[in-house]
Design a protein around this nucleic acid. Structure first.
Length: 990
DNA sequence: GTGGTCTCCTA
DNA sequence: GTAGGAGACCACA
């Protein structure tokens, strides 16, 4: 260990150690025993290896093969592998692997570990660790010192020289010039040329096909360097090798720029700041204890003379790739920002600008370059289509949009496809446009259109190409349409979901995250309205009847706008720390939900038809009685007429008024009148129930049965709630009745096919559990840990009534209060719910806050946060915006405050089930349960269809996946509980 | 035909 | 008291 020296600049004889932190993480993860976990399950294997390595280098470097003691020390990380270039091309990386889930939390922990060792933790936005290491190594040498790079990455070997060496901490092996030559056959200064020839499949550096390290070394030995080799490539005897070198010379030069490290990064910290100081024993021990590294804790205590028993474990936050570093989730890539931009984003600006400037320029360009609809091409031949596909491949990115005959992706026919490869460079491929000259059966196909099948055959490889990023707006629609046609679009981005991650609830003009409002908001451009082409109402035509010229302007514009929006919005994810939310919670839902919608659920038409008949008879009888009691025939379904009868002619005491000043005829009002002994209101309530069930469910559902699949395919909206919940429509399958016996029967029409069962798995009390976690309420946590009846526990705590033999009414009130808390309680609302005086409700709330003071704190903190920031966050970092929370109108403000209190709870629960859904297919497949299909989501419930013989095996897999869904991103302080059951129909399964 | 209002279904 | 979607009615075009 170095002595405590006064600050001094690095000088001759000094030795700088530069640890490649990001590289180490991946290497340690794979090299060390996989299942090192803390007692609470947190995986810490890589952190453990990292700490041991640091300690060894700091304490006993001389005893290792490094052989020298450092005077300066720094740990370097990738700021985020999503530097601008990854932002633009993250999907461009072939073979890019997502890090394993149990490695993810360790990214943040390793930074924490570095700080606990009191070592500089260096990263710089827009640059990779390798570039920083190269720059600092140069600084050290220029100051007359030496540098040792702690890494075994071949990408860094180009830096090795007389004063710079490398050290592989796993093998305790030094890497100097002879070692590089031994391993690669070339000296360090030729490593760049060697890598340019061999390429790198992980980082997607192209290189020259057919040339591996052996051949590359031999060629460089013979020709000296890459330029000479390429100039004299024609002399090479081997035919294939010569042709490849000539054909891929440009790739080799590009690759050289990708692998060359930059030594001129404008760093924020000088190397003088890396001077090594003695460790802060207690601080380090606190961290090590928190990690439960007992052996190392003991060693550090011995070496620093601290008493480990006296020191408390530190509190260590586990973030899922801490917000600002979410992009660290991808494997680091090589190359510099400027080189990566070469030839691919040429319009963006001169070389040498930082990646973020480049991204900003692209965004500005996308937003400000005028949209010229006359510049779009109409693609009418396969040759032109192939040309555009080539352009898309070259760009590595393509926005696309499908034009169809219907808004329902399960029914829609394809009219055409549009593509955009750069802002302003867009085209439309008409496939099935008609001129109306044909007969009524739809003849009159216009000539000079590529046949759909032919076009899709050409497009499929592009749409499925792992190295080309596809961009859509509301992509689930196009994804599902193409999925029906045997194309699985990947990889992709969705501008609607990016916008949603950025500002759910922000509520700007135009409402949501549709293309028209996004275009207006971000590009200042109003796209051609769809209705301008198709008309509206009874004269509306389908898109295939639109003139091709107009269709081209419209469709190509959509693709153009989508691409521009992506340039503008995608960088904002990084800037706002929302990349992780988008990549882990939003984007993966497209294919998961797309498949669910595609599967649909079987609905028994007979059951519904029979019920409709029964309901019709019942309602007819009721109507006669109602007319009798009212003394007149009227439209019972008209609240206005009903109000006039009840409160006008019959003179019953009116209760509440509606917004527009009418007497309310809500069920609540009618129930009160019925309780007061009036006959008519009771009949009305019953009639409404029956007609509601008939019109909304038993009559409507059969109309949604798909003509070909015979099943019902709902459509889930991924971006229409403020909190992160899904919504379901056409039909809405998230509001199928359950509360009443009559209504519940409708669920019996949702069935499993012959030989299968439906499995229903639902989270028990998930929102209260989330509340107990986020508000840190000890009694609630304990009650959940003990598996108690949470409402009874609440009642017992509040009213002092023992749980044994508690009256139902007492528990019911506590339950209402618990729900009220989740909804951002008000005395008014609780009084309403429980039909008690407001004063009494007030007293309940007061007592609740006294018993659970953490709740009050949570509410106040949440409101303050929302006022301060205009949004609130779920435990996974999803944001829900409440721009009106600062309204001067007290009722608007109060409403927003309640919503802001509710959103983190409802939204965290929504995030958890999203995580479960995203993992479910893989979990089932891993268990050999690929035939078990997830069909529906109802906020806290998932419905599956499974072959009978797989049901018993599937249930534990489903339950386990759901119960562990928060992990490892978050360690909930409360267990999640899932109840699951199987049956022939949804009623009995639930 | 479109849009607002009222009511009611779910978590 | 939170978050949704949908059907019926009705006034407006």
């Amino acid at each position: 260990m170095a002595f405590a020296l006064p600050v001094h600049p690095m000088k001759k004889g000094d030795h700088l150690f530069l640890v490649d932190g990001s590289g180490y993480i991946f290497r340690a993860y794979h090299a060390l025993p996989p299942l090192t976990r803390k007692s609470d399950g947190l995986p810490v294997g890589a952190v453990s290896g990292f700490c041991n390595m640091l300690w060894k280098l700091l304490q006993n470097a001389r005893d290792t093969n490094v052989g020298v003691t450092p005077t300066h020390f720094a740990v370097i990380f990738d700021y985020s592998s999503k530097t601008f270039r990854n932002e633009l091309y993250s999907e461009y990386k072939a073979n890019r692997t997502e890090p394993p889930e149990d490695l993810v939390p360790q990214f943040g922990l390793i930074r924490e570990a570095t700080r606990a060792f009191d070592l500089p933790c260096i990263e710089k936005e827009g640059f990779e660790a390798d570039d920083l290491i190269a720059t600092y190594a140069r600084h050290a040498v220029e100051a007359g010192g030496d540098a040792t790079i702690i890494s075994s990455d071949k990408d860094l070997m180009q830096l090795v020289g007389p004063c710079v060496s490398m050290y592989d901490p796993m093998k305790d092996r030094e890497i100097r010039v002879p070692e590089v030559i031994e391993k690669w056959g070339v000296p360090p200064e030729k490593m760049i040329d060697l890598q340019a020839l061999t390429g790198d499949s992980i980082d997607n550096v192209p290189g020259v096909p057919g040339i591996g390290p052996k051949t590359a070394a031999q060629l460089l030995e013979e020709y000296g360097d890459l330029d000479t080799l390429l100039d004299r490539a024609s002399e090479i005897k081997q035919n294939k090798r010569r042709e490849n070198l000539i054909a891929h010379a440009d790739n080799a030069r590009l690759s050289r720029e990708l692998v060359r490290l930059r030594t001129d990064v404008p760093v924020d910290e000088g190397i003088d700041a890396f001077q090594l100081n003695p460790p802060d024993g207690p601080k380090l021990i606190g961290f090590l204890k928190a990690m439960e590294f007992t052996t190392l804790t003991r060693r550090v205590a011995e070496a620093t003379g601290a008493d480990a028993a006296e020191i408390e474990a530190a509190t260590v936050e586990v973030a899922e790739g801490a917000a600002a570093h979410g992009p660290d989730l991808t494997v680091p890539s090589s190359g510099t920002g400027e080189a990566g931009a070469e030839g691919e984003v040429a319009p963006a600006g001169p070389r040498g600008e930082t990646p973020h400037q480049l991204a900003k320029n692209l965004a500005d360009q996308a937003a400000t370059t005028a949209i010229d609809r006359t510049a779009y091409e109409c693609i009418r031949t396969t040759e032109r289509l192939e040309h555009w596909i080539g352009e898309a491949r070259e760009a590595g990115i393509v926005a696309f949009d499908t034009e169809t005959t219907s808004l329902d992706p399960m029914q829609a026919g394809l009219c055409g496809v549009s593509l955009a490869v750069a802002p302003g460079r867009a085209a439309y491929v008409p496939l099935s446009h008609k001129d109306g000259s044909g007969d009524l059966l739809g003849g009159g196909l216009i000539e000079d259109q590529i046949a759909e099948e032919e076009a899709l055959t050409l497009l499929k490889p592009l749409l499925e190409d792992a190295s080309v990023l596809k961009i859509g707006q509301n992509l689930k629609f196009d994804w599902l349409l193409l999925y029906r046609k045997g194309i699985e679009v990947a990889p992709y981005d969705d501008t609607m979901l990016i916008s949603y991650a950025l500002e759910a609830g922000a509520g700007h003009a135009g409402g949501g995250h549709g293309m028209d409002s996004l275009s207006e908001r971000w590009l200042g451009h109003v796209p051609i309205p769809y209705k301008e082409l198709t008309g509206t109402g009874r004269n509306q035509i389908t898109f295939d009847m639109v003139e091709i010229e107009k269709a081209t302007a419209y469709a190509a514009e959509d693709a153009d706008i989508t691409l521009r929006l992506w340039h503008v919005l995608k960088p904002r994810l990084v800037a706002n720390g929302l990349t992780t939310v988008y990549e882990r919670l939003e984007r993966p839902m497209i294919s998961v939900v797309g498949r669910m919608e595609h599967r649909g659920i079987q609905v028994d038409r007979q059951i519904l038809s029979r019920m409709s008949g029964d309901f019709a008879q019942t309602a007819a009888g009721m109507e006669e009685e109602i007319y009798e009691l009212a003394g007149d025939r009227f439209t019972i379904g008209s609240p206005k007429q009903l109000g006039e009868i009840l409160f006008g002619r019959m003179g019953l005491p009116g209760g509440a008024k509606t917004k527009s000043g009418q007497w309310s005829t809500s069920a609540q009002v009618l129930e009160e009148l019925a309780a007061a002994g009036h006959a008519l209101p009771r009949r009305i309530v019953d009639w409404r129930q029956v007609t509601k069930l008939k019109s909304t469910y038993t009559d409507a559902l059969p109309g949604y049965i798909h003509p070909e699949t015979g099943r019902v395919h709902t459509s889930y909206s991924l971006a229409s709630t403020t909190t992160g919940r899904l919504s379901s429509s056409e039909p809405n399958l998230q509001n199928i009745p359950i509360r009443t016996t009559e209504g519940r029967k409708i669920r019996r029409a949702f069935v499993a096919p012959e030989g299968c069962r439906l499995i229903s798995a639902d989270y028990s009390q998930i929102e209260l559990r989330v509340l107990a976690h986020v508000a840190e309420i000890p009694q609630l946590r304990q009650a959940f840990a003990d598996g108690l009846d949470i409402h009874a526990m609440t009642a017992s705590e509040m009213f002092g009534v023992p749980v044994e033999g508690m009256p139902g009414e007492v528990r019911r009130r506590a339950k209402a209060i618990n729900f009220g808390i989740i909804y951002g309680i008000s005395a008014f609302g609780l009084a309403n719910q429980l039909a008690i005086p407001r004063e009494e409700a007030s007293a309940y709330i007061k007592r609740y806050f006294e018993r659970f003071p953490g709740i009050k704190d949570y509410m106040e903190e949440t409101k303050a946060f929302a006022r301060q920031n205009g949004y609130v966050e779920t435990i996974f970092g999803r944001r829900a915006h409440y721009p009106e929370i600062r309204s001067s109108n007290p009722s608007v403000r109060a409403f927003n405050e309640r919503a802001a209190i509710n959103a983190p709870i409802q939204g965290s629960a929504a995030d958890i089930i999203r995580r479960a859904m995203i993992r479910m297919e893989g979990a089932l497949a891993d268990a050999g349960l690929g035939e078990v299909k997830m069909l529906l989501q109802v906020h806290d419930e998932l419905i599956f269809e499974a072959p009978v013989d797989l049901v018993e095996k599937a249930i534990p897999v489903i339950r386990e996946t759901m119960e562990s869904a928060a992990f490892p991103a978050r360690n909930l302080s409360v267990p999640l509980q899932v109840d699951a059951r199987a049956a022939d129909n949804w009623d009995e399964a639930h």
